[in-house]
Amino acid sequence: MREITPEIQNEIKEMIFDYYAEECEIDKSEITMETNPQEDLGSDSLMFVELIEMTSDKYELDIKLQSIGKYMLKASMDTMKDVVEMFYKVYQYGNDIVNQ
């Protein structure tokens, strides 16, 4: 398991919020942890895949999309909190996120 510091957590959260603000053309200040990315921001799965690719590149992660897909069978992605926490786990566990 990879160590995740509060600084990295904050960096990941800010990166995700910046990404959705830009892609969904919405002011970042309007996005909260309770915001629903699909219903409130109009995001879609292709945006989500792009965010995964971006995060993998930034943190040099080796993650298969199918590992995330299997994790999503157990965990809903209804809020930004869900998304942010999933990316913390991606950072920490990589493909082993399936078993979390």
Partner: peptide, 8 residues
């Protein structure tokens, strides 16, 4: 595909 990890 969904059961095997498709994102969507």
């Amino acid at each position: 595909a969904l059961n095997e990890g498709a994102i969507k």
